[in-house]
Design a protein around this nucleic acid. Structure first.
Length: 675
DNA sequence: TCAATCCGTATC
DNA sequence: ATACGGATTGAC
């Protein structure tokens, strides 16, 4: 039995109208609906709370956005059915941010709020509503008292040439953060940089100035490192980690600690990009080129864009850092929105390893060890020398697994399935090739380009590479770091580490040599970002090597004339980013323009585009075939029309939703993959 | 002329 | 999803 019967209800005395965002995914319902606040909820149904409302006959979840005196709605208002919890989980600035993100990405507010506020966990909410609980501290451990920001315990940053002192603009950046200003920086980290320490110092400076921080990294390993650095600088109680990997209870606990103002700093993976923080002073993202920063759920916002929007809306500082620089970050610099924080060339020279390119060496058989390992001889001798000097060696291989795909041994054309044109793979070392799409076995494969019948491994996976290296360097321990097991740190002595990109461990004292293998597989990907991504992966791995002055060497198996290889040799990510951005301007690709993709069955895509009132300058490109009989169209507009494009697509999606169009269409603004 | 039914549309 | 209004249909 409900506590209040409908007939008993009367509206609250003050602000009896609640503006509610109903949690339904339909695009045409993406606006607030007004409800009456019953008198008994007058004090508790505050903005930011979760509510239940009767909507089109159903009980649905909703967000109370606002309380007002009157409604613009002509008809009769229904009452709020229920207050889910008095906890105002949706901070007003996050509601504003979510609206801005929805608008930018042609999505609905409700979709963004689902990403922004983790699911409620009632038990967690009840525990210690008065006392703080930093997220990773379990409920029964002693809890620190609430410390107001800017009062205690934060050490001053170290002075001069170490740390941020290695960047001419670095000390000024920290000062501005501590002074409560809003500097915006695109930071190119030096090789060997202890970046978690630098981010922690920037966070500490901001906290010292009495403001909060949100910092986002790509994966759990980077998060562990940042967590440790922050604990070193701020102690264990001033920050929480927030990531989907925590599980519902711990995630909600961390979220609440931030929302209740118990901690000034939130760090995490992209799940933290919407984290509420009181008096936000700094947003930071490390390695913004990592595609893990792109949210895979509608409306597919990117952590960098969300954080920069927060900085813009909230007057907060922004720090976009990495060893590499994305074209998007370059655009921030070129438009003057952000300033570069880069080392001087002399500092770069002093800290970089010696980098050398080498071709796929036809003479590799002269070094018996190299032949065994299928290594070009320069790579082999470099590794051997480092091992002889009792230094660890990192070998980066681009893809996981065992012989993921194969190509013609004669002309190198990728081997494709004769039936469906899917990629062929070798499931076992001496087996017959099998199609990875349709599963058919191609026993008598002949290359359609040259007629060749022999196949070679297109990309040798980490496990296979590790086996071969073990044979080439007998007696040297070989470890792999990849999907199944990611190593965080390895000891300093002689040893081989075979890692896939993103899984490279840090070595005590740095790696003596870093080998970047099978690079052509990265560079020949048919992707707009192939060059940028290759360079990002190389720089990230090469940054783990010792400086050349300490014997650190890097060998990249690629043509030294290619731009990404050049950028690696000169350690000049800014040069490459400027070049890349110029090229994208010329070709009309993001971020020089705004692109959106519309994916679905051919009739559904056509229907949506027919409905959409696209801006004047819009160009429609395609169709490109997508997975399962669906197709994809791209729409390109100048950046000045970006908002209009998103709105047009959102409205068109709404019209389709209102008509109950059967087959879904996915609308994506700034899709990561363009072709 | 009126009720039953269908369809489209709004959902507070 | 469901509820409602207007249009349509069919029986008297």
């Amino acid at each position: 039995m409900t506590p209040t019967r409908h007939t008993d209800r009367r509206p609250a005395d003050g602000s009896p109208v609640a503006r509610v965002c109903v949690d339904v995914p339909l695009a045409h319902l993406d606006r607030p609906f007004d409800y009456l606040v019953p008198a008994e909820l007058a004090a508790t149904a505050v903005p930011g709370t979760r509510v239940k409302v009767r909507f089109a006959g159903q009980l649905v979840d909703g967000w109370l956005l606002e309380r007002t005196e009157r409604s613009g709605h002509a008809g009769r208002l229904a009452y709020l059915e229920k207050l889910v919890s008095p906890e105002p989980v949706l901070a007003p600035e996050i509601a504003r941010l979510a609206r801005a993100v929805a608008d930018r990405y042609a999505g609905s507010l409700a979709d963004v709020l689902r990403l922004a506020v983790p699911p409620r966990h009632a038990r967690v909410e009840k525990e210690t509503p008065e006392e703080p609980t930093p997220a990773d501290v379990s409920a029964d451990e002693p809890r620190p008292a609430r410390i107001p920001p800017g009062t205690t315990g934060v050490p001053d940053p170290p002075a001069d040439t170490d740390g941020w002192g290695a960047y001419p603009a670095g000390p000024g950046l920290l000062r501005a953060l501590a002074d409560g200003r809003a500097p915006r920086a695109v930071w190119s980290a030096l090789p060997g940089e202890d970046w978690p320490a630098r981010v922690a110092e920037a966070a500490a400076a901001t906290v010292r100035g009495g403001r909060g921080v949100v910092a986002v990294v790509a994966d759990a390993r980077d998060l562990d490192r940042l967590d440790a650095a922050l604990t070193g600088v701020l102690g264990p109680d001033r920050h929480v980690r927030l990531s989907a990997a925590l599980g519902p209870a711990r995630r909600y606990r961390a979220f609440l600690a931030a929302r209740r103002g118990r901690v000034p700093v939130v760090i995490g993976t992209r799940a933290a990009m919407f984290a509420p923080v009181e008096r936000l002073g700094l947003v930071a993202i490390w390695d913004d080129g990592d595609d893990l920063h792109a949210e895979p759920r509608s409306p597919y916002p990117h952590a960098r864009e969300v954080l920069l929007t927060r900085a813009q809306l909230g007057g907060a500082a922004a720090l976009v850092g990495g060893h590499a620089r994305t074209a998007e970050a370059q655009l921030l610099v070129e438009t003057g929105w952000a300033r570069e924080v880069v080392p001087e060339r002399a500092t770069v020279r002093a800290r970089t390893p010696a980098v050398a390119p080498t071709g796929d060496d036809p003479q590799l058989a002269r070094d018996p060890g190299a032949a065994t390992a299928r290594l070009p001889s320069l790579a082999w001798t470099t590794a051997r020398d480092a091992l002889r000097a009792d230094a660890p060696v990192l070998v980066q291989v681009p893809r996981r697994g065992y012989l993921p795909s194969v190509s013609c041994a004669d002309c190198r054309a990728p081997a494709r399935c004769p039936h469906c044109a899917g990629p062929l793979a070798l499931p076992s070392a001496r087996g017959t090739p099998v199609c990875r799409w349709c599963g058919r076995v191609s026993a008598a494969y002949a290359c359609p380009e040259c007629g060749g019948r022999r196949l070679r491994a297109a990309v040798v996976g980490a496990r296979r590479t590790a086996e071969e290296l073990g044979r080439a360097f007998p007696g040297v321990p070989v470890r792999t770091s990849g999907r199944e097991e990611v190593l965080t740190r390895v000891p300093g002595g002689a040893g081989l580490v075979v890692a896939t990109p993103g899984a490279e461990p840090v070595a005590d004292g740095g790696f003596g040599a870093v080998l970047l293998l099978d690079s052509w597989a990265l560079l020949t990907r048919a992707d707009l970002r192939a060059g940028e991504e290759a360079l990002r992966r190389w720089l990230t791995a090469a940054a783990l090597a010792r400086p050349a002055t300490a014997g650190g060497r890097v060998v990249v198996v690629a043509d030294g004339g290619l731009a990404p290889v050049q950028a690696l040799l000169r350690w000049d990510p800014a040069w490459f980013a400027a070049r890349e951005l110029a090229e994208r301007r010329e070709l009309g690709f993001p971020p020089a323009v705004r692109m959106a993709s519309v994916t679905g069955t051919a009739p559904a895509v056509a229907e949506l585009l027919a409905e959409a009132r696209l801006p004047e300058q819009a160009e429609v490109l395609g169709p490109v075939p997508a997975d399962d009989d669906r197709e994809r169209m791209l729409i390109r507009v100048p950046r000045s029309r970006a908002a209009a494009l998103a709105e047009a697509l959102h409205v068109a999606a709404g019209v389709r939703a209102a008509r109950k169009a059967a087959d879904p269409v996915r609308v994506q603004v700034d899709p990561l993959e363009l072709f």
